[in-house]
Amino acid sequence: MSTVITSTPLAGRTAVVTGASSGIGQATAERLAALGAHVAVMARRRDRLDALVGRITAAGGTALAVPLDVTDRDAVRAAADYVAAELGPAGLVFANAGVQLISAIDELRIEDWQRQIDLNITGVMNTIGAFVPQLVRVADDGQTSDLITTSSIAATRVLEKFSVYSGTKAYLSQLTRLLRVELGRKMVRVSTIEPGMVDTELPDHVTDPDASKLMADLINDIDVLRPADVAETVAFIASVPRHVNLTEITVLPTQQAI
């Protein structure tokens, strides 16, 4: 298969990125805009979204800030209508918002459990529910349409104290496989990315001292992934020919052994 990738392979496409105020989401929004997509960026922190939009527009791109909490179903549905009205129907949705709160199960940090379930699962489902109609509409018009989620290697690896987080990511990996069966028939591609250790804000959210030290040591000891590395992977998934669906991609630091 011979593929020619132009400098703006995503030109004309409307992209939605959740969790866009930092890390992988922020880097991906900037990369998709650089490749020609009109990008709607979503997260709770308005100031960071505004700064992101400023950088994208200064570089010649098009971006729209949509402050919201993805756990609020009505807000996400309203945002979907707003994006369609301002930029056109979304043909690329990167459901990336998530949180990682690591602790031993017998510590009974139930609020942390619930927060991970609410954001990592319910937030993604709210995003899917709001934007799948647009993705299908775009595909029906003969255009490329992508739904991409952020899972983790924790979805398949047995990592101590990661039980709830890993469970939420296993849900996303399996959900992607199942949705591809349904949406693939409609020419909507469904993919998930399973990164290893990425230098983002997520380790800062870990309150368990031992788990926090483990992650800090890993960042210090090896050359871990940068958000831009994952962003490039998302861009590649979205840029391949319409009949090609890269369903699951694991991205690891070369030196990561756990």
Rank of each mutant, 00 (worst) to 15 (best):
A257E: 11
Q100N: 11
L92E: 09
A27L: 11
N126Q: 11
V39T: 09
S22Y: 07
A75T: 00
T3P: 13
A79T: 05
S103F: 15
A84C: 00
V136S: 06
L119Q: 13
N126R: 14
V124E: 07
D141N: 15
A228P: 09
S21G: 06
A33R: 05
A78H: 03
T127L: 15
V158L: 13
I56N: 05
V39S: 05
T254R: 14
N96A: 14
A33G: 10
T254F: 12
K213G: 07
V93S: 00
T176G: 08
T250P: 08
V39R: 05
V16L: 07
T176S: 14
A104E: 12
Y165F: 09
V124H: 12
A139L: 03
L214Q: 10
R45Q: 08
G23P: 01
T127G: 07
L32A: 08
A34I: 13
V17P: 02
S239I: 10
L119P: 09
D74S: 03
E248L: 05
T8L: 05
L10V: 09
V132N: 03
T149S: 10
I153G: 06
V188P: 00
G54P: 15
G196Y: 02
T200E: 04
A154V: 04
D146C: 03
V251T: 08
I193C: 03
L214K: 06
Y82Q: 12
V198G: 04
D146P: 01
R48T: 09
A95G: 05
T247N: 15
I110N: 01
I105S: 11
S191G: 00
V132L: 02
L35V: 13
G91T: 03
A75Y: 00
M125V: 15
A20E: 06
D106P: 06
A79S: 09
R55C: 10
Y171H: 10
D72A: 04
Q256L: 10
A15R: 04
V136R: 02
E194D: 09
D141Y: 11
S151K: 01
V53I: 09
I258W: 06
T28L: 15
P203N: 01
D72P: 05
V164Q: 05
A11P: 00
I117H: 08
A238S: 07
S145K: 01
Q116S: 07
T176K: 11
I222T: 06
T28S: 14
E182Q: 05
K186Y: 01
Q256C: 04
G184M: 02
L147Y: 06
L68E: 05
H205K: 12
V124S: 11
I237E: 02
T62S: 07
G123M: 12
I258Y: 06
D118R: 09
K186M: 02
V224G: 05
I117E: 09
A58C: 13
R13A: 00
N126P: 11
